[in-house]
Design a protein around this nucleic acid. Structure first.
Lengths: 348, 348
DNA sequence: CCATGCATTGGAATCGATTACATGGAGAGG
DNA sequence: CCTCTCCATGTAATCGATTCCAATGCATGG
């Protein structure tokens, strides 16, 4: 592959001049500039980003360490992150932690070794040493997205779901449900604990209890949703409604309910945190709390790039909203009004 | 961040010795080795991958340019690619082409500028100049996955779906469907044309025609599936069954069918290419042709790494299989036997 | 006519590693 | 006791860019 030296000798100038042309330095005679550009074109020369990075100490790449790529929520997040990053001139290197702290650390370490300019993380656990350390040292700019680790001086871009959770409880209550259970995420993650907490509080506002046996411990994966749901359905007094704190666990819950020959919402109502296009097409369509995922990803990138480029980054909190479909029962007004605008979403 | 020089002076040796220790060069006295390792640990030194890459001319990173990350098929592919790459000591840099040739070229160019060791592509179009050029020059090892561009000397790792398509047609025929339409993908992609061709041929074996108006042109996105389906349903003699050549277009088809108040499979039967966990949970569960996605990704990485490391890479062709559910109608034997083993899949 | 200044350009150091080659010392063999 | 090896280590070149500083040339003004 042609290097800057080849271009220089082809154009009859020094490498310094070639570099200046390429970096649009003003002090280059137009005629020289043309000659250099011609040499560049004829050789098909492309600057070596590795060499440039070494010299300038910036890679124009961002790292994104995600909890689980197979979860459509994170897929969409990753996509919007990449979009915004590209718009700002950065590439994205993704690492999939698969909800495993060890894998997460591996990716963080690898990314830092590669000297990415900044790191976007939705932490899998509550206090990975690798992450807390890089946050403390402040060598690599970092921003948390979706989930975060308390007590660190790192901007957080996340969604507040408390209002939506309250709306959901109101919805369930209005439909007559009183015994409501929740499938929790890992307590070590903020989203895992916050959602349950918001739910417990909202139930309290309606004078509803959240007994211990109605809180099942999941891990944000479908299998755990199924296991927890099995436990609920085996209770002497099984719940009338189940709230899964993420979409994959809701999927597992549907599996288990269906496997027992029960029906949603007739036998058990079901709702989920994190809306995804597919929820429109399940039987029945699932009532879910929707995060502004695209905006979340874009805001996270902007915050990170602010930090990288020396501006002050601010935390951002967006709000989730309830999308009522049919998995909790029919409301008086017929539930969802029409399919048309919802379809727009799944078709992007 | 500490550099190799810092380690050297801390350990009282030269940088060469430090480098030898780090690269497990045998000619280092054990005592020296210990001293260096101690310095490394006390400084928390990590080698700068950028500098190393510049010198060794390898980045230990693979590029993956994917047609559409939001498509669960490609998400799963990306995940398995990352898994296998990590196992072999490589990182993966993903680029999402979003079915746009221009975006695809942008990513290919950026990745090559970053001097990735090899490139995995599922081409969006039939002959991007950027891709054909890099394939011809042979500078960066390349492997096609899922889709490919004919006429290039590039290994291809793909799935052969002709047998599964034939099974599908047999299934539809057995259920009494005779007027069967297909939603095609972009003709410029191999998967777009092959699937339709296999379908046409299988229909022929049953003496069924595939009239022009029963072939709708889609682009692998949900919206196009919806549009094409609308066209089908507006025909004087609408088809009894629709075969969508990818999962997103099947989703769009379901949208349109449902929006018209029609039912699957009673009014129109539906089948899709590419199985995904969600198809189990739609109403009704969708009959689909499943690719061995994980194996596809892993085989692609192995082929690419073979090429990178100087071994000869071989093309790989895996076979798809039909997964019968209920969206084409009930078979005599009751269709799917049970939910249990299928559930395993969605729970991974 | 000379000093000054500006516009261009080149030389060379530098980023952080790897590695060929040189060097010095110790032990072995004669 | 000298020389030849071999082992361990250091010196320095190198990868491909960027950028500071110096040098050159030409024009302008006094």
């Amino acid at each position: 592959m042609a290097s800057i030296k080849d271009v220089a000798s082809r154009a009859g100038v020094s490498v310094a001049t070639v570099s200046r042309v390429l970096n649009e330095h003003p002090a280059v005679r137009p005629e020289t500039r043309t000659r250099v550009l011609a040499a560049v074109a004829s050789l098909g020369y492309r600057p070596n980003a590795v060499a440039r990075s070494l010299r300038t100490d910036q890679t124009r790449a961002l790292g994104l360490v995600i909890s689980d790529v197979l979860n459509p929520f994170f897929t969409e997040l990753a996509r919007s992150v990449e979009d915004e990053a590209r718009a700002l001139g950065y590439s994205v290197v993704i690492g999939n932690a698969d909800e495993q702290p060890a894998l997460q650390d591996h990716h963080v370490r690898t990314l830092i070794d590669r000297r990415i300019d900044g790191l976007l993380v939705s932490p899998t656990d509550g206090g990975s040493p690798m992450i807390t350390e890089t946050a403390r040292e402040g060598g690599t700019p970092m921003v948390f997205v979706d989930r975060w680790i308390p007590g660190l001086d790192v901007p957080v871009v996340r969604t507040d779901g408390t209002a939506a959770v309250r709306d959901l409880v109101a919805h369930l209550h209005a439909l007559g449900h009183r015994r409501i259970a929740v499938i929790a995420g890992p307590a070590a993650t903020t989203t895992g604990s916050e959602r349950v907490e918001a739910f417990r509080q909202a139930l309290g506002e309606y004078g509803l209890p959240l007994p211990r046996e109605y809180v099942g411990q999941g891990d944000f994966q479908a299998a755990s949703g199924r296991r927890v749901t099995a436990g609920f359905l085996d209770l002497a007094r099984p719940p009338e409604a189940i709230f899964a704190t993420d979409n994959l666990m809701a999927l597992g819950a549907m599996d288990e309910i269906r496997a027992r020959g029960l029906r949603v919402p007739d036998d058990v109502a079901l709702a989920a945190f994190d809306d995804i296009p597919w929820f429109l097409h399940t039987a029945p369509p699932v009532t879910a709390i929707a995060q502004p995922t695209g905006e979340l990803g874009r805001a996270a990138v902007r915050a990170l790039v602010d930090r990288i480029e020396g501006r002050t980054a601010h935390s951002v909190t967006l709000t989730a909203r309830l999308v009522v479909r049919r998995s909790c029962g029919e409301t008086g007004d017929g539930g969802e009004t029409g399919h048309t605008d919802e379809t727009e979403r799944s078709s992007r």
